[in-house]
Amino acid sequence: MAVDAQTVEKLAELARIAISDETIDEVSNRLGDVLQLVDQLQAINTEGVEPMAHPLDEVQVLRADRVTEPNRREEFLALAPQTEAGLYLVPKVID
């Protein structure tokens, strides 16, 4: 079972992952295999079962509102591919 190329392209766009034309068939086929595996889930009736997002039934502990983080800009900017004037640079953002 393959996923059609159009679906793969849509997913690639959503996930912002370039997929070359040469590999798109391969990707479609393998995605299809995985989806066929996960489609086994459809066989079971789960009506009324509460979905489980976390393995344990714990609740969130909140943090006090305090400033605890120092300025470490230079350390962080040093990791970036391109910076200037304390800013991260990216190709022009168009609104």
């Binding site: 996960v38 889930l41 459809q42 079971i44 789960t46 079962v49 509460e50 979905p51 489980m52 997002a53």
Partner: peptide, 11 residues
Amino acid sequence: YYNKAQQVRRL
């Protein structure tokens, strides 16, 4: 998919 899998997770 996602919701179903989370239900199965509880089972």
